[in-house]
């Protein structure tokens, strides 16, 4: 992890209220693994006070992309960044998805809403490792759908405006024949309710599964102790989301 001032390359709207910010950091671009995140100080001064964590969405050359929904103080500031502005970035942080292990042949990517964030970088890794990829993403409607840089994508929308009228989990179940006999491993990111359903499905079908969690955190690397995740069957009660996550094997935690 390093802390550095990075130049904003551009901010681009990719869907309704959803933006991709690209910044330049040769170090972060070269060492970040899928599932890791960066913690960004969006403004000088004290409003907003704390850094904001973002999954790395994609890297290309010296560029790093993050994706965000404009929902609050931090994201409102970020969307207004101009090409050439400087942002203070801490990263890469956290434990990546275990995409480099050989305990699977098919990477099953599941993303709900902005949970698609770590999927492009995951896809790139899986493709480079010559793994099969099946991708299932869901959003509220066609207007919030982001499917850039994904492969073999199945889409669901809550309102039925594109793809299946339903959720990413409905897709995952519906298309299980596509992956279930090809040594699958699920990598999921999205709202807690979705992760809960994905974990239940994975455990019921004996499919290995990792999820990437999201939650409030301050420092992003362990000094504030602010982001506990409840462990199952461990000596201690909590792990820290920022340092021991944000990716976890679903069998280790209570979602």
């Amino acid at each position: 992890m390093i802390q550095s001032l990075c130049t904003v390359h551009n901010v681009e709207q990719v869907a309704e209220n959803i933006f991709v910010l690209t910044f330049i950091s040769p170090h972060i671009a070269s060492v970040t693994k899928a599932g890791q995140f960066v913690n960004i100080r969006v403004a000088e001064g004290v409003e907003p006070l704390l850094r904001r964590p973002f999954s790395v969405c994609r890297t290309e050359g010296e560029c790093v992309e993050i994706i965000f929904n404009v929902v609050g103080k931090g994201s409102s500031v970020l969307r207004k960044k101009q090409s050439g502005d400087l942002i203070d970035v801490l990263g890469p942080l956290g434990v990546p998805f275990s995409l480099f292990e050989d305990d699977f042949d098919t990477g099953v990517l599941v993303g709900g809403g902005l949970g698609v964030a770590p999927l492009p970088i995951s896809t790139a890794t899986l493709v480079a490792r010559q793994k099969s990829v099946s991708t299932f993403i869901g959003s509220r409607s066609k207007r919030q759908l982001v499917k850039n840089h994904l492969v073999n994508v199945h889409v669901a929308t809550d309102d039925g405006t594109e793809g299946l009228h339903g959720t990413a989990v409905d897709l995952l179940k519906k298309h299980s024949d596509e992956y279930r006999y090809r040594r699958p491993k699920i990598f999921a990111c999205g709202p807690t309710k979705m992760l809960h359903a994905v974990a239940a499905f994975a455990i019921a079908n004996s499919i290995p599964c990792e999820v990437s969690l999201e939650g409030p955190m301050a420092c992003g690397f362990g000094i504030c102790q602010g982001c506990p995740v409840e462990l199952v069957g461990a000596e201690r009660k909590y792990a820290l989301m920022c340092k021991e996550g944000p990716t976890f094997d679903v069998r280790r935690i209570r979602i």
């Binding site: 939650g215 409030p216 955190m217 301050a218 504030c224 102790q225 602010g226 982001c227 506990p228 995740v229 409840e230 201690r236 009660k237 909590y238």
Partner: peptide, 8 residues
């Protein structure tokens, strides 16, 4: 162990 989330 500390307190349950949310802590901050």
């Amino acid at each position: 162990d500390g307190n349950p989330p949310p802590r901050i």
